[in-house]
């Protein structure tokens, strides 16, 4: 009876554990193993030690993808986080703009594929961006944006900014709603200007929200795949590939599963470092020790 009682609680864990171990943990471990093998998915895998990693580090395409990934991370912080903060401040100062909030947040519901299709037509030579440039007189700046290096990566980072700004705005908005009235009123009575209240009272109080938003932006920047894959497939000539795109290409286009796995492991390590910070923040908030 007591044994049954002791075991019983664990039964509740089993379904979730089975799923997670079978579909997530085992594959993750297996990927690490595959990264030390040569394997085309059909033949017998062969142990080759660190060759895949050596090859990867010597491959100029890896470093291009690495550079692009870093650009993506920086771009994901700069554009959507800054814009999201500004939008949140605007909405904070203009209460009751629920519709506006919803409209800016709309891209959240759209998939990466839909967003990419939408924007790839806009970036074309005959697309909307060039159409506008023509109207406002920048005729010599007209170009097929997704074909010119490095404009293609920046163009896609801007698309991502369009996508993520609303999300960040909502996060900042929620953070702002939690700011108590007293410090603002105190500053107001002291005679501070609007600008001073904003920069010295409100923004400093957003520090913890900002930390989370920035870390999430970093993780998303590392992981970007669907926008690049649908818009350029990493091209032309791999100029706009990211680590995630390279991983997919090595594995599922040229069937070097070992090299793809080495890419995946490297990417995971990078993301993991960012994720540790993320976990520290959310665990602190969610009282993990209990």
């Amino acid at each position: 009876m007591t044994v049954v009682k002791k075991i019983k609680p664990y039964i509740f864990l089993i379904p979730a554990l089975v799923f997670v171990i079978l579909f997530l943990i085992y594959p993750a471990v297996h990927t690490i193993i595959v990264s030390f093998m040569e394997w085309n998915g059909i033949s017998k895998p062969q142990w080759i030690g660190f060759d895949n990693y050596v090859h990867m580090l010597q491959d100029p395409a890896f470093w291009i993808a690495f550079r692009n990934t870093i650009l993506w991370v920086i771009g994901s912080i700069l554009i959507p986080v800054t814009l999201g903060l500004i939008a949140a401040l605007l909405i904070y100062m203009l209460p009751g703009q629920k519709t506006i909030k919803l409209l800016l947040f709309l891209p959240y519901a759209l998939s990466g594929v839909v967003i990419s299709i939408m924007w790839s037509y806009m970036y074309r030579l005959d697309g909307a961006i060039n159409g506008i440039l023509k109207i406002i007189g920048f005729v010599e700046n007209i170009k097929p944006w997704l074909q010119v290096v490095p404009a293609n990566t920046f163009a896609m980072i801007i698309t991502n900014g369009w996508r993520m700004t609303g999300t960040n705005m909502v996060l900042f908005s929620i953070g702002m709603q939690a700011i108590p009235d007293e410090p603002i009123e105190a500053a107001y009575i002291e005679g501070s200007s609007n600008w001073q209240i904003m920069t010295r009272v409100i923004i400093p109080m957003m520090a913890s929200t900002t930390a989370v938003v920035v870390i999430m932006a970093i993780i998303n920047g590392f992981n970007v795949f669907d926008i690049v894959w649908v818009m350029t497939e990493g091209g032309p000539y791999r100029s706009s590939a990211t680590l995630a795109v390279n991983m997919y290409r090595e594995s599922f286009v040229i069937f070097k599963f070992g090299r793809g796995a080495a890419n995946a492991v490297t990417l995971s390590l990078l993301v993991f470092v960012a994720a540790i910070f993320y976990m520290r923040v959310i665990f602190k908030k969610s009282r993990i020790g209990e």
Binding site: L17, T31, S268
Partner: peptide, 26 residues
């Protein structure tokens, strides 16, 4: 009452940490 509940939690939670790429090949 579960022994090592934090370990179990970490096992389950680990799925949110890694990029999807690491699961694809296996």
């Amino acid at each position: 009452p579960i022994k090592g509940r934090f370990v179990f939690f970490l096992i389950l939670f680990s799925g949110t940490v890694f990029p999807l790429q690491i699961y694809l090949i296996p």
